[in-house]
Nucleic acid binder design. Structure first.
Lengths: 342, 342
DNA sequence: CTGAAAGCGCTTACAG
DNA sequence: CTGAAAGCGCTTACAG
């Protein structure tokens, strides 16, 4: 089996390579009958255009980069799934690039990556999305970008967000409806915009319900299991301990649960517990966690589509999309309204 | 900033583009002084060779594909990390390709992928590694391959394995040392070679200790949390229930633990429990699981190096590497030897 | 609606 | 140790 090139196809179809090229690139100016003939030959020969030749001639690699630094492998996998879907659907390839958000010269690293691999654009995920100086520099270099869940939406930037603050508020309102008024809160890594949004949702729900914000019920975590354990020790050993705790992610909630077990406290009888993310662990512990599920795959896919649109038209108006998360009620929460009042 | 190409570098260095090419490709036949001069200019200009031009001219993409279908995102992330490390170190790029191992036409899908993206080789992970007809077909097509943890090592194939059977045997011997003789076993997805190896290790340890293999203590799982729950219900409700249970992975162990909690059985006081993989969940549940840690990152990196070597010399002798897993003792296991005998 | 020519930026094969 | 020429397989820009 000798090599099948565009020339092979053109010869066999009795047309020029330019016409084959037009069919390949779905250009309109081709007679239908010609198009069909060429397509048939392409299928017959199993011809696949050379990405290298296309990239070299067109000066665009059809490759985008996915940049992440996230401690949750389930989150990263979901993002990859969504990005890959959009890439496949649109004829793009993907380069994954895990990195360290704490790195001083991350922007230089990303610029080098883009130049070296000739990437057509980048998908940025939290918390890198919120490295403002980095994102600005990438934009200044005319690198096509899309931001997933940035802390602040910017009218000039493509982004896909979720309703972190709103759903957190809803969740707290749900707990309040269940009779909880002393509600502990464990915040996430302050490098993540999500940490603020979830805290804001918590505060807002309290305010609406007329419950005073009590700093002693709020503990600074960093999204890790270990920080959840520490927070759990603090909150559960409080003299007047909370009747419910909202941890900003499931890992921290799992940490609290472990401490509750060790203190012989029963969840949810002694304390209700809520996480965030619907991480696998939220279903693999006992009791299973009431949590919030973000549409991560859909967000990543939507973001990648925005990026691909921007690559084809770098001057187009920026778009900001918001997708909704939803509350998943499971075993770790319970009403504490007095019996008989219902 | 106009475009910097090999010609720009050659002009500025006062040499031909062929000489620059030699420096780029680390060919030996270049005078040291020339090499240094060219290198300096490359650095000064920030020149990065065009991957597309190189690929087109050399007919090799310097891209390899990573193929996986695995329910554990932590495992996949670890594999990606190792593969990416070897790729970066050797100037290769990576294309990730999640897929469905149950798919009938997976081999056609992979062949298409290789042709379409001009991949120089593939890294195969379990359970795809054990689709014998598929792997054979890929070899027949002269596709460069490396197999991670195949069920059987083949002298003609590059592979990197771990000591699944041996470490499982050691683990069971440890439990026997702790006084356990009724040891339950939950096997994994039969599509995975690891499922057999772990079962064989279990059997071997029993045999060495002179304990009769008891099929009623062995339950067929599939590596999922849910299958662990089912197995837990069966094993823990046995009239003469086991004093220890070895689940072939941590997800299933977590499932057993959940059932134990629901039955008011204490781990490890009422029953010892062991998992496999050191998945994040093994540390995020209470009690934390005694488990086995495979050197997944190192395996993936070693495998990728083998593949890259094979790409540069497709006729070289195949290599089979084995890396060792290790036992991590945590809170879920306990000796049941009668007190005072120690 | 279709095509001939030039060129993208490298490596290969050959020569010296 | 170094270089001139050809060519990899496409797309771009232009022409008709």
């Amino acid at each position: 089996m000798s090599k099948v090139t565009i020339q092979t196809v053109a010869d066999k179809a009795g047309v020029s390579i330019k016409t084959v090229s037009r069919v390949l690139n779905k250009e309109s100016a081709v007679r239908d009958s010609t198009r069909e003939k060429v397509r048939a030959i392409i299928a017959e020969l199993g011809y696949k255009p050379s990405p290298a030749a296309r990239a070299l001639a067109s000066n665009s690699s059809k490759i985008i980069g996915l940049i992440y630094d996230n401690l949750s492998s389930a989150y990263v996998m979901a993002v990859q799934t969504g990005v890959l879907k959009a890439c496949t659907d649109n004829g793009y390839n993907l380069v994954i690039h895990p990195c360290n958000n704490k790195s001083e010269n991350l922007s230089q690293e990303l610029i080098s990556l883009v130049q070296k691999s000739r990437l057509d654009g980048l998908v940025l995920t939290p918390p890198i999305t919120d490295r403002e100086e980095l994102v600005t520099e990438l934009y200044d270099r005319k690198i096509n970008l899309v931001n997933i869940a940035p802390r602040r939406e910017d009218k000039n930037r493509d982004s896909v967000s979720n309703n972190d603050a709103e759903i957190s508020c809803e969740l707290i309102q749900y707990l309040i409806d269940q009779g909880h008024t002393r509600i502990g809160f464990i915040s996430g890594d302050p490098d993540h915009g999500a940490a603020y949004k979830r805290l804001n949702g918590y505060k807002k729900a309290l305010k609406i319900a007329g419950i005073k914000y009590n700093p002693s019920l709020v503990y600074q975590g960093d999204f890790s299991f270990e920080s959840g354990e520490k927070a759990g020790h603090s909150l559960l050993n409080l003299e007047n301990r909370p009747t419910a705790i909202f941890a900003s992610n499931d890992y921290m909630a799992a940490g609290v649960l472990k401490v509750a077990h060790s203190l012989n406290l029963h969840v949810p009888n002694d304390v209700s517990l809520v996480g965030f993310d619907d991480a696998p662990v939220s279903r693999q512990i006992w009791p299973s966690l009431t949590t919030i599920k973000q549409p991560v795959v859909a967000m990543a896919e939507a973001a990648t589509k925005l990026l691909i649109n921007r690559i084809s038209d770098p001057t187009k108006q920026a778009t900001a999309i918001t997708l909704d998360s939803k509350l998943l009620l499971r075993e770790s929460t319970k009403s504490i309204k007095s019996v008989g009042n219902e």
